[in-house]
Design a protein around this nucleic acid. Sequence first.
DNA 1: TCGATGACCTCTA
DNA 2: ATAGAGGCCATCG
Length: 122
Amino acid sequence: MRRGGQHARATRGASRPPPLDDSPALQAIWHVVCTIPRGRAATYGAVARAAGFPGRARQAGYALRVAPAALKLPWHRVVGAGGRIVFARSSRAHQEQARRLRSEGVRVTEGRLERGALTDLT
DNA sequence: TCGATGACCTCTA
DNA sequence: ATAGAGGCCATCG
């Protein structure tokens, strides 16, 4: 992928945690997403943490965003803190995510998942 | 190089 | 419950 054709190799400072744009990092996140059991959901933060990137929830979202459709990830099982669907209520993605979750037996009301649907991946 | 922009989170008030 | 401030970091113009 590498959307803009930009190439970013370089400066892997040993001072900072490993960069996310490395394929292994993306795969680690994608893998974690695959481990979320059917009928449950995990937050972006939990996914990032489980993949070895605590505090980088935002990057978990990025990983999902750039994930090849061919991977067929259960992306709908990843939600915002507190079990909130992050997409705008009016958006197509929001409805699609709610639809998929409900089809797995998860109750979704007003963009919120029922308490208990969340798993911390620990 | 910089500033803005996100499928985000946590803490305070 | 809502709002703001900080923090995080890859991408893009």
